[in-house]
Lab assay of single mutants.
Amino acid sequence: MTEYKLVVVGAGGVGKSALTIQLIQNHFVDEYDPTIEDSYRKQVVIDGETCLLDILDTAGQEEYSAMRDQYMRTGEGFLCVFAINNTKSFEDIHHYREQIKRVKDSEDVPMVLVGNKCDLPSRTVDTKQAQDLARSYGIPFIETSAKTRQGVDDAFYTLVREIRKHKEKMSKDGKKKKKKSKTKCVIM
């Protein structure tokens, strides 16, 4: 069974824990209790493949930012979460993405942009803004509501699919490099 290491990042209060708990335990946590770091595991079937999701729910508070490099190193894919009623959390996505790329030393890291709290009427981040940002990053965008469960499975499952595509691409690139290195030079 394939294991996928997913990391949920975003500013404090955007609903990272609520999304994760909704996926794992099928219930909505409405009281806000700032996370330092929590880890969850769940076995699911995605596109006919049974897999184990190892999900790291991270601290959004700035005082825990020193811990970010460590979990970013171990993560295979990242859910970059903002709240649709919090423009600052949307603007912060850029910083999370840049930090992930720096730590992973790669421009090509599996990510999904997630606009959470889409059940709320007080939207300050337009869907088109988020779609445009995701398009500019070359990553999928999904709106979710941890409260109603809308888009929750889709967000995590899409990230797994992005990781699969990335692994497939990397193995193809690896095979191309191996083929090239088999060419021999004969000096007579």
Rank of each mutant, 00 (worst) to 15 (best):
E162Y: 02
I55Q: 07
C185K: 15
I139Y: 03
V8S: 01
E31D: 09
I84C: 15
N116Y: 01
E162S: 04
E91Y: 05
Q25M: 04
L23V: 07
L52P: 11
K167H: 07
L53A: 08
F156G: 03
V152D: 04
K177G: 13
K117I: 14
K101S: 05
N86Q: 03
K177P: 14
V114R: 00
M72I: 12
F141Q: 05
S106M: 09
V125N: 10
D126F: 09
E168P: 04
L23G: 15
V112I: 11
T35L: 02
G151P: 02
R97D: 01
V9E: 00
Y64W: 07
K165M: 11
F156K: 00
K182H: 14
R149H: 14
Y137A: 09
K184T: 10
Y64A: 15
E3L: 04
K179W: 06
Y40W: 08
V112K: 00
G138M: 02
R149M: 15
C51F: 12
D69C: 01
V81E: 02
Y32S: 11
I93M: 04
D54R: 12
V186T: 15
K5T: 02
S145Q: 14
Q43W: 03
L79R: 00
S181D: 15
A155I: 14
Y157R: 12
M67D: 15
T20C: 08
K5F: 00
L133V: 08
I163R: 01
R135S: 10
T35I: 00
R164D: 09
E98T: 05
V44Y: 05
Q22S: 11
L133R: 06
F78Q: 00
E63W: 02
T58D: 12
K172Y: 06
G115E: 02
L6H: 00
E162A: 06
L53N: 02
H95R: 13
T2R: 10
R135C: 05
V125S: 11
F28P: 06
V112T: 00
Y40M: 10
S65H: 04
V109H: 04
M67P: 12
Q61I: 07
F82W: 05
Y40N: 13
T87F: 04
K42M: 07
E168D: 11
H27R: 09
C118W: 07
A134I: 02
K88T: 08
C185S: 15
D92F: 06
P121C: 07
L19D: 04
L23I: 05
R68P: 13
G174H: 01
I55P: 07
T127H: 13
R97L: 15
C118N: 06
T144G: 12
Q70F: 02
K117M: 15
T74K: 09
D57T: 11
E37Y: 00
L19E: 08
Q150Y: 14
V9M: 08
A83V: 02
P140A: 12
F28Y: 09
H27K: 06
G48E: 08
E162G: 03
T87L: 07
V44C: 08
G77S: 01
T50S: 07
Q131D: 11
G138C: 02
R97H: 06
V8C: 04
F78V: 11
